[in-house]
Computed example of a mutant assay.
Amino acid sequence: MKNNLLSFLIFLACATATQLLSQRVAAQTTASAGMTLDQLKAVKAIKIANLDKDTYLKSGAFILDRYEERPAYVFNYTDGITRKIYLYKVFSAADTKDLGLLAIYQNTKTNEIKPFVIPGASADRTAWDAYIDDLKYVGEKEPGLMSTLTFVLSREMAGLLEGGGGKTDEGGAKKKEEYNFCFAPDAPVTLPDGSAKAISAITAGDVVLGYNAGTKSVAPTRVTRVDIHESDSFALTAVWLTPANEMTANGRGTLATPILFEATANHPVLTDAGRKALGDVQAGALLFHIENGKTVPYRVIRTEQAVRSVKTVYNLATEAGAYLVGETVVLDK
């Protein structure tokens, strides 16, 4: 009787924390959409190859982005089993509207993975019914799952109530740091024919050269949206890159001329360790450059924060989820 009561209370706490978290996230999101039951099933079926490295990926009609860049929540219980919870935000790839959250539970002893798709507050009732069913009929069968999930959702909800995540000014507009996923107006975006065009001249509907991280190949992709932000000052972070597999460019023993790459500190780039904000990239890390259609690793030899500032910054959203700036692979926001 006591065990049944405890299970019910945990289930109730998890459901309540979920509802409050989804409402709070939706209230702080400028573009949201109601998740359908079919969308919930499709998101639940997405397979993530490496949960620790794949913090951002596009799969079919959806984009998964690690919630607030959080690492996995790790729980070490007295039964000796380590349990983890990974939390992703779910967006529609077509229009980048927020659909909800994906919580992935992992039992590291059995390597069993159990996904829980948490609909946004405006989702269809059938989608919410499916999530509640998963809590009841999947969550309760795995010891430790419900308590870990409840803790994670409650912890995130507490952070939001304290003002964390989706920071806004008094008028409700996003603060400037929320725009730090951008490039200077003169950033050269690589086009399918190999030429370049300033990002400030790119418009929605243009075709640029995109990148598929799974196949490590490039292909044309369409720009679905151009974000433009203005302020008194946006600081740019700089890294200098040289080919990782060769010490010289001319075969005569002289060092290759480093390539300068700039973006705001929070803009995500693809590194050998997965998705990283440019400001977190350190000397020695590998970024990826495209030469003659092939992916070539380039090593970071120097970094500098706030190398210069600009008043207007730009970012692209593409169908591929990644594009090239100065022939270096960058990821959509």
Rank of each mutant, 00 (worst) to 15 (best):
D54Y: 10
S32R: 02
A33G: 04
S32N: 00
A45M: 08
A42T: 12
D54L: 11
D52Q: 13
T30L: 03
A49Y: 14
A42Y: 07
A31Y: 08
Q39G: 07
K41P: 08
Q23G: 13
L51K: 12
M35E: 02
Q39I: 01
T29C: 04
M35Q: 05
T30R: 08
S32P: 00
D52W: 12
S22P: 06
Q39K: 08
G34W: 03
L51C: 13
D52A: 14
N50H: 11
A45P: 08
A42D: 14
L37S: 04
A33P: 00
A26T: 06
Q23C: 13
G34Q: 04
G34T: 03
K47M: 13
T30G: 01
T30F: 02
L51Y: 15
A26H: 10
T36Q: 11
A49P: 09
A27G: 06
A45L: 07
A45Q: 13
I48Q: 05
Q28N: 08
R24M: 01
L40S: 07
A26W: 03
N50K: 08
D38M: 01
V43L: 14
L20V: 08
D38I: 02
N50R: 09
Q28T: 11
L21F: 03
S32C: 00
V25T: 09
I48G: 05
T29P: 00
I46D: 07
A27D: 06
A27C: 01
K44Y: 07
G34Y: 01
S32W: 00
K41L: 15
L20C: 06
D52S: 15
L51W: 15
K44P: 02
D52C: 14
D38E: 06
Q28D: 09
A27M: 02
V43S: 12
A31C: 09
Q39W: 04
Q23M: 14
A26M: 05
T30H: 06
G34R: 03
V43M: 13
V25N: 04
K44E: 11
A45D: 15
A33R: 04
L21Q: 03
A45T: 11
T36P: 11
I46V: 11
T29L: 00
I48M: 07
I46Q: 10
T30W: 05
L20W: 04
R24F: 00
A26N: 09
D38G: 02
T30Q: 03
K44S: 08
S22A: 15
M35D: 03
L51Q: 14
I46H: 10
D38L: 01
Q28Y: 06
M35P: 04
S32D: 00
A26V: 07
L21S: 02
